[in-house]
Design a protein around this nucleic acid. Structure first.
Lengths: 112, 112
DNA sequence: ACTTTATATGAGCATATACGCATATAGTTG
DNA sequence: CAACTATATGCGTATATGCTCATATAAAGT
């Protein structure tokens, strides 16, 4: 049998949506800030340098996508990475980009 | 030392851009159609059911992101997957989504 | 109950981009 | 060189989404 059956349209939309959620620098900053463990919103605001409103919105987007999960404790809300594939995804992309950049740097040296 | 140094802003933008390129269903369809090997544009047009103009644009986007590469042969242009991390990326995301969907299905059964 | 603190959300604006249509370019054949 | 084929691109439009400002909600303290 073939390795990959073509995914139906609905599945492709889900995959695309997941990539879209990861396609914003501020959301990546939030994910990065959560690599070491859970943080509350105020901590994430100062860690990322964003406004409270904007950070809150992005946290909602990430939570709706099941990438983060929320835990309320008194006045504060703590977020943490809920999907264990996220760090692997980021590593894959970062590694791939490093290679691409290294190639481009080599070209610049050779040409320049 | 900490596992992850925070990435500088420029790096985050690169990562975000890569995810953005992968965040379109039509581009995922093209990538999927190329899993088995290289294809020319006409083949990709019929494989995906898109218009020639739209397919061509998306192929350009994927190529600019170094995800695909082009090879010209006479009148035709053949595209293939240039970045070996792409299949792994897709597998990771698909696997994660399957788990999420399975959990949601279980909830529906339990609740409904 | 009122105030304070932490977080979430509604509205409006600005920007990005996917798509369709028409046309341009490049390469081939007569 | 003219006609044809395969692919690419300019342009306009529609839609989505990120950001800011102001305000709403929720929980805690006095």
């Amino acid at each position: 049998m073939p390795k990959h059956l073509p995914l139906p349209d609905a599945a492709l939309q889900l995959v695309a949506h997941r990539f879209a959620v990861l396609a914003e620098p501020m959301r990546l900053r939030l994910i990065q800030a959560l690599f070491d463990g859970e943080r509350n919103v105020s901590e994430l605001v100062s860690a990322t340098g964003g406004t409270q409103a904007n950070v809150s919105r992005h946290l909602q987007t990430l939570t709706a996508a099941h990438i983060l999960s929320r835990r309320k404790e008194g006045l504060q809300v703590f977020y943490r990475i809920a999907d264990p594939t996220i760090p692997k995804l980021c590593e894959l992309v970062c590694g791939s980009l490093e290679k691409t950049l290294a190639r481009q740097a080599a070209h610049f040296e050779a040409a320049g």
